[in-house]
């Protein structure tokens, strides 16, 4: 199992019900691939540096996942079929690349 970040950009004009459906779909896609969601960070609507799908905003969802290494493509492919999902990016977490020093406990 490897830890990944799953970044999903949704249509900014969704109501609460539609949003819940999309979230459930994403979580099911992860579950079907044999992964588990460790945390979900929801940023809400955020302004973009350039427009995606004719909107200057997007609803950001950031999932932290534990996945088998070869299943990321299947998740991404299934998420990209959804109309309300505007962008998907999966990033492998690399804690060994981190540069910030952790505050030393005195």
């Amino acid at each position: 199992m490897v830890n990944y970040d799953l970044n999903v950009l949704l249509n900014p004009n969704l109501d609460a019900g539609q949003l819940a459906i999309e979230k459930e779909y994403i979580e099911n896609a992860v579950k079907n691939a044999g992964g588990t969601v460790t945390t979900l960070e929801e940023w809400g609507n955020r302004r973009l540096a350039y427009s995606i799908g004719n909107a200057r905003e997007a609803h950001f969802l950031i999932y932290r996942l534990a996945l088998a290494a070869d299943t990321t493509n299947t998740i991404q492919a299934s998420l990209r079929l959804r109309d309300h999902i505007r962008r998907v990016m999966v990033v492998k977490q690399r804690p060994e690349w981190a540069s910030k020093k952790k505050p030393v406990a005195a």
Binding site: N7, L9, A49, Y50, I52, R87
Partner: peptide, 8 residues
């Protein structure tokens, strides 16, 4: 850039 936080 890919997730629209920075401009290309």
């Amino acid at each position: 850039r890919q997730i629209g936080l920075l401009p290309f």
